[in-house]
Structure formats: structure tokens, C-alpha cells
Design a protein around this nucleic acid. Sequence first.
DNA 1: TCATAATGTGACCGCCTGGTCATATTATGG
DNA 2: CCATAATATGACCAGGCGGTCACATTATGA
Lengths: 223, 223
Amino acid sequence: MDTLLAQPKQTFVNLPPEKRESIVRAAVSEFAEHGYQRASLNNIVKRLGISKGSLYQYFDNKEALFLHVFDHFTLQVKWYVKASVTGSGRDDFFGVARQVLLAGIAFIDSHPEYFQVYLKVLFERDVPRREELVARVRLFSLEYFGPLADRAMGQGLLRNDIPAHKVVFILDAMLDRFLQGYAQPYLDGGLALAGMSAGRLDDEIDSMVAVLRTGLQPSGTGE
Amino acid sequence: MDTLLAQPKQTFVNLPPEKRESIVRAAVSEFAEHGYQRASLNNIVKRLGISKGSLYQYFDNKEALFLHVFDHFTLQVKWYVKASVTGSGRDDFFGVARQVLLAGIAFIDSHPEYFQVYLKVLFERDVPRREELVARVRLFSLEYFGPLADRAMGQGLLRNDIPAHKVVFILDAMLDRFLQGYAQPYLDGGLALAGMSAGRLDDEIDSMVAVLRTGLQPSGTGE
DNA sequence: TCATAATGTGACCGCCTGGTCATATTATGG
DNA sequence: CCATAATATGACCAGGCGGTCACATTATGA
């Protein structure tokens, strides 16, 4: 699960870090804009001002470059989510959901193109090892919220007429859709999430979580 | 809003209906599999057993063919949704939501490739007139639920601490995500929606709507 | 200094793309 | 029957793709 998808060649590892980073950045940018299949290695080397031969000294082929980019993406996401939750109270199921949502927003703000790569993978058919890539991100979400939901259910903090896995589905759907809307303006259902001020965004998140609370907590529980 | 995006050439209109339909079907299939940019006209004519020159006698170019396909898609969707709601009680906001969800499922079942085309458009960047295309579908949803939500709010059937447009966002997000999960197995958050029996699917839909009800109705209202 | 290894280069390859057009085939109606 | 219009065809074009490779350049260390 935590193994890397692809290793670059030794030549790439030997590169000075700043050059490595600029190459990854250019690749992310190209994959974000065009998805996997339409992304052009010619474009990438042109942006970087290096020759195509060099790129092939760093990575075996287009697929290896792409998988390397995706490895970076998943590592970053997991780091963001884990960092956001430690410290805050882990007992409040919906509080954790709120934290994860905020972490997602923060990630998109600081790595907008990485998130675009992910969205492209979701809806492009012939991406190499696509199922595996998507599973890495989504299973992370399910594995993360699943146990939390089970525990909350055990403690009577969730409605018992809805199975825990369905609670996770609803939560996951809401969070994912919110982040998609934030990243892609025309997906936000008229909420104008994209480019919203941090304060107003917090309000949106709070009311979103409030609805989840009301809908998913046992009916007697106070707010 | 209801004007067509693109007209085929007269030669196409003159074709016998079954040939027209087979051409549209082949185009839908190709666009569904590869999205707009990677879809290949060569593939389409190969499948159909016609020459490329013929295709260009029917449509000005790739874009016109694609827009014609999308026109068909939007017309079908609107027809499905409208047909599903007439007859049932229009007063129950969440009942309507449930009907629309069922209509979406029915549409995907009978036109799976059309829905794939739509999903591809959502996440592909350089689709011609993409914003306009997406707006046609999403605005339909907003324009459809917006007034319903306003009315329900006026009748005190919705929580008054959440603005109506936010209610619409939540509803839209949930419906859309549910349909995406139904159409793309790896998006369903572990619910295994795809290929689910009709009965179990209805259960999933009912509990989804139940959560929405509980979360969005005024706190005193019964279920 | 110099042999060797590591790295950089871009012309080139076969393949596929959307699109064109001169030509062949078929339908039409006087 | 035949002239004309409508339609069908596929070889062809320029351009872009991922990938290769013989060669040029640079770094290394004895």
C-alpha cells in the first residue's frame, strides 16, 4: 500500500534537488492541463529547456514519469490530512470530518495542479494502472473514516438505523463534492466556492458539517 | 437555452433514420470511451464501415459531430427527468429529489455511454464550448431545484438556518455523487452501487433521502 | 593529462490525428 | 436514356505523438 508506484532512473536521483523539483513541477503542470494521454513529453521538455533524450535518461517512459508524479501527490495528501487532524479532538466524528475538509482546501490552495491531476485520473479511461491509483486515494478515505464511523456508532454517536458504511459514503460524497466544487468552479452548484474568502469558506464548511450532524446523529442528540 | 448547439449538414438529415442513429451511436461510444480530444474520427468511420469523406459530408468537423451528440444527450436527460416527476406529488421536496434520483438511475441504465460522455466533459479541459455544455446540464438542475427549494422554504418545510441555495447545493452534490458512483464503480465509496439489484438500490436511495430529510427539515418536523 | 564514465542532445522513426479533394458511384427527373 | 445533382470514397497532407540512438559534451579520478 505504501510502496511507490515507480522509481525514476538513477540519473534523475543524482540531479540537484532544484532541477528534480522543476522537472516534477513541469510534469505536474502538463498532466494537470491535459490528463495522461494528451499530455505531451515534447511540451514538458520544451518548458524545461532540456532535450527529450535527457528526460528519457531520468525516466524509462511517459508512464514512469506520470507514476512518479502521482506518488508525490498521494504522499502529500496523506501528509496534509494526517497533520490536520493530530492535535484536535479525535473523539468528535464530525469535528474530524471538518478538519479533513479544511485540510483538503489547504492542499488544493497550495497544490492546485496536483488536485487537477487527480481529477483527470478519475475520469480518464486509459490511464496506466488507473484503478490502483484511484484506490490509493479513495481507500485512504474509506480506511480513514471507516474505523472512526464504527467507533462513533459503537458509542451511540451516529444513527443506528443507517449502517456505518453508508454514513461513510455520505460523508465521503459530501467532502469530495465540496472539494471538487472548490477546485472546479462550474462544479460548485452555484455556491461560488472557488476564490471565496477564507472566512466565508469556513461558514460554508460549518453549515455543511451541521447538516451532516443533524442528518446522521441519533435524533435525540443535541447539537 | 433550448436552442441546439450545432446542426448537421443537410446530407445527414437526408439519411435514413436507422443510419443516422447508428452514426450517432458510434460517435457516442467513441466519445464516451476517449473523451473529446482523444476520440478518433478514424475509429468511428472504421466501426461504421463508411469512409471518412462521408462523415465530413454529414458534419462540418469533429466539433460539430460532438456537439450534435451532446445535444441529443441533454434533450434525453431533460425528457427523463420531466417524465419522472409529472404524476407524483410535486409538493414533497424530498419526494421529488427521490424521483429525480430514480430518473437518473434509469437514464444511466438505458444510456450508459451518454452519461460517460458527460463525465468526460466535466473533467476534460479543452472540450469546445465546455462551460456552455456543462452549464446546460447543471443549470438545469439548479433551475429545477431552486424554485422548489424556495417554495419549500416558504412553506416552512426546510430548516430556516440554512439558505435555500445551500440546500440546493447539498441536494445537488448528493444526487450527482450518487449517480457518479452508480456509473463509475470506483467512485462509489465502497457502496458497490454499480450492478446492484434494483431492490437494494431503492433501499440505498431511500436511506440517502432519509438523511437529507433529517438534515434539512426543520428540527421539529416529523419524519 | 587523459581514459573512462556519466550525462546531454536533437534529428529521426513509425504511427496516428483531423481534415481535404479529385474521382467514382448512385439517384433523380425530364 | 441521359444530363445533372447528390453522395460515397480513400489516398493524401501537414502536424504531433512517444520513443530511439549515434554522437557531443562534461565530470571524474588516477
